[in-house]
Structure formats: structure tokens, C-alpha cells
Write a protein that binds this DNA or RNA. Structure first.
Lengths: 167, 167
DNA sequence: CTCAATCCAGTTGTGCGCAACTTAATTACA
DNA sequence: TGTAATTAAGTTGCGCACAACTGGATTGAG
């Protein structure tokens, strides 16, 4: 985007102040959708006694089995500041056990309890109910996911790589 | 991942357990993108001394002028439980004033201070910097916004209107 | 007019997300 | 080998989001 000096041209390009309109902000739509999802998940997960974030942790554990906190965080884009108390709550709920790795005393392995494994049976229906609430078909979901993941990658690069190209 | 034996059936009906994979969850991509945005906004808004949510409140006030808390919440999809403490902080920062409406003593009018109005000048460049970080062009942004807004509407209807069709 | 229902802002309590920090263990290198 | 740098998990502090609730103002049905 170039700087427009001339007053005449300025009328033709959108005035900078219009970019400050709420309904122009992609991030707001994103944020709103994310929170709307939260509301639906809150209802759907109520029976299981889980929050959405706790559900995500269990998804990863159901898929990958025992994992150190670090790896869990890489899958979920969360750090120990978020995960430590969350895992403590999951442990208190009897769904998960944490134990120091023997191989590396810094690391803590997180694994499902019997109860945690068993919960998967009841969680199987969750994605279907969520999918129904979105009203999206598979192709739309995959397209949207791809776009969002690219967007996330671009945003992650900000600061790290302000000029993404051959230097 | 399982080897697919009976191609015809298995292809059409993905095993329910596969729906529990993290990378199938649209909400996770959404959530991740939203948080990635948060990181960029945190950097960009640091100079202004604002959080992203505070910035959104100011966007609405810059656009609409004085508003009661209720209306503010409707624009932002937030309730008083979130807005009250947030507005208190904005007031403490000297950007906003709150006063009981004379016409309706239940209502509280939120208006910008001189300082709050002045901050707009410095905020004008924010959308440009955010836009640069996303790497999206205008058409992509608008398409994505439209999709997300439709998704939000569908999710909002969940519970309220389980069968949205002509009756 | 009356009083019950509704509405608005605010408070409380819980959980998430993240920066900044601490502690302890491991690794690297001089 | 000894020590400095790095790494992992946890803690603290802050702000946001939301459910559930309170208290006071307004509205409306009778």
C-alpha cells in the first residue's frame, strides 16, 4: 500500500480512519467465531464435565498416548503456564496422571488413567454434534481450516521474520 | 492411522474415532488463529498501552461516540461481566468516562475523554500493521470475514434454533 | 396505583492464555 | 571436569470471558 499525498486521490482511496471500523476487522470475526464455538462446546461438553481446553488435551492424549508436558504444549500451542494448572485440574478429576520422567528429571509425563481412556467412548459423539452446529460440510471445513492455518503461520512469523523472503 | 480395507465403505464413512483427531477440528484452527492474532496485536498495541479488547472498545466508541454499556456489549458480543472491569481500567487510564444516564438510572453512558479521542490519531496506523502481518489481500479478508460471520451466526443459533428451516 | 416481571450494571468465582519469573536438571564447552 | 548456558515445569500476576448472582431502576399487567 502506498502513501497517498494528493488530496484528490485521498478521496478515492479508503480514508485511513475507515480501517478503524469494527466491521472491517478480520480479527474480530475470528474472535467472535471462536467464542461462539466456545458456547457450543460448553453445552456439548457439559455432560463430560470438561472445558474446551481440557477436551483438547484429552484429544491429543487419546491420539498420541503418554506425552511430556512440553510435547503436549507443542501440539496445542500452549506453554506450561497454561498447561500446568489445567493438567492439575484434569488430574484432580481423575482423568490423567503426571509423573516425573525417570530418563529426564525435568520432564513430566502425562498419561491417561483408566477413567480418562474410558471417557473417549463418550466423547466420540462430540465432533458430530459440533459439526451439526456449524452447518458446514466437509469441504468447507477443510478449506476454512487450510486458510486459517496459513493465516496463523503468517501471524506467527510476525516479529520473527518481518520480511519473509530471500535476504 | 489405519489401513483402509474395504475402500468403498470406509472412504464414505470415516471411523468415528478419526473425528477425534486434533487436526480435524475446525475450532482448533480458529482458536489458534485467534490467539496468533492476539500475539501480533499485543506487540502492535503495546505503544498505545492497550490490550486487544480495550482497543475494540475504543474502535466502537470512535465510530459511534457515546454509548451505554449495553449497546457497547451488543457491538462487541460482550456482557457487563466482561465490560465493567474492562471499562473501569480504561477509565483509570484516563481514556474514558462513565456516568449514569439521567434519563434511565439503570444505564451507564460511556464516552471518550479528550485523551481517548486523541489516541485515535495514533491508532490509525494499527490496521495497516496488522494487515501487513496477515499477508492477506482485501478480497481474501472479506471472503474470510463473510465465512466466519456466517459460521458465528450458525453457532449462535445452536440451542436457540436446532432446526433452522421453513416450518 | 401496585407490585411482579424485566432490565441494567456491577460483583463473584472459575478457568483460560500469556508474560515474567523461579527452581531444578541437563547439556555444552572451555 | 567444572561452570555457564539451556531446558522443563511450575508459580505469580494480570486481563479476558462467561455463568450465576445482587441491587437498584423501570415497565407493565391488573
Amino acid at each position: 500500500m502506498d502513501e497517498v499525498r494528493s488530496a484528490t486521490l485521498e478521496r478515492m482511496t479508503t480514508p485511513a480512519t475507515d480501517w478503524l471500523r469494527l466491521d472491517q476487522q478480520i480479527c474480530f470475526s475470528l474472535n467472535a467465531a471462536s467464542r461462539a464455538f466456545g458456547g457450543v462446546y460448553r453445552v456439548v461438553l457439559k455432560d463430560l464435565g470438561l472445558t474446551y481446553s481440557q477436551y483438547l488435551v484429552l484429544l491429543v492424549l487419546w491420539e498420541h498416548g503418554e506425552l511430556p508436558v512440553k510435547k503436549l504444549g507443542e501440539h496445542l500451542r500452549l506453554d506450561s503456564g497454561t498447561l500446568s494448572p489445567l493438567l492439575k485440574r484434569l488430574e484432580a478429576a481423575g482423568l490423567v496422571r503426571r509423573e516425573r520422567s525417570a530418563r529426564d528429571e525435568r520432564s513430566v509425563e502425562v498419561r491417561l488413567t483408566e477413567e480418562g481412556v474410558a471417557l473417549r467412548e463418550r466423547a466420540v459423539e462430540v465432533p458430530r454434534r459440533i459439526s451439526a452446529a456449524t452447518g458446514l460440510d466437509l469441504a468447507e471445513v477443510q478449506d476454512l481450516r487450510a486458510r486459517l492455518d496459513r493465516l496463523t503461520a503468517a501471524l506467527d512469523a510476525y516479529g520473527t521474520d518481518p520480511a519473509p523472503g530471500p535476504s
